[in-house]
Design a protein around this nucleic acid. Sequence first.
DNA 1: ATGCCGGGCGAAGCCCGA
Length: 263
Amino acid sequence: MKIATWNVNSIRARLPRVLEWLEAARPDVALLQEIKTVDEGFPRLEIEELGYNVAVAGQKTYNGVAILSRFPIEDVTAALPGDAGDGQARYLEAVTGSDGLLIRVASIYLPNGNPVDSEKFPYKLRWMERLCDHVRGLLNFEEAFVLGGDYNVAPDDQDIYDPERFADDALCRPETRERFRTLMFLGLTDAYRAFHPGEIGYTYWDYQGGAWQKDFGLRIDHLLLSPQAADLLTASEIDREPRKKEKPSDHTPIWCELKKRGS
DNA sequence: ATGCCGGGCGAAGCCCGA
């Protein structure tokens, strides 16, 4: 089962890119972020025509996440627990797969948190703490799950093209990295890092200043696996092709492959 | 020091992203 995550930066503006990527990369499950539309505006029919079921947690103008799957999508939860007053559509969780391989997945758009002297930074940190609390609960089930998305966290300096320039950025502030480590130390596996230790693997390049051409990138999109999912992990790669196209998203997809034992 | 680019909204120019 191939599970991919991609911050598309508007599903409506990006629909041609998304459709050609689905046909070329053929993920079984695609976790999308920043769809920037309400549920009714999601181009459901075009995507269903390619053989996907669709679950959406939309929002007008900002945020919004979705799950696409070739398998039935069940047990859908459209909010991260821990703050009933949080109206930002940044979390969508569901169970999908076949009898042989049933996986819980979440599409995550973790708050950016900049500028750090605004209320956005504590919101990010609280959101990360809520995510940790929720993951602790999920781990108790001892099931396979994949939490994919735009975490807006560069876990280490090797994940930034210019660490000094980003030292005080919400993506890599010590408070941010501390909470990300807390999350990882619950027992999660970073799928890309599991196969590419020490390797540069960016997933985002700013539209400005020729960042893509200069490879001035960041690794902020991640697929985090429970121990039961990590046991099935056979590959994980960053797909740079969509970032090369006309009118691209500023992020590019990453994916991982899970194989049922004995298959 | 700030904008650079690009999307949404809405019909010009501002807000936001990372």
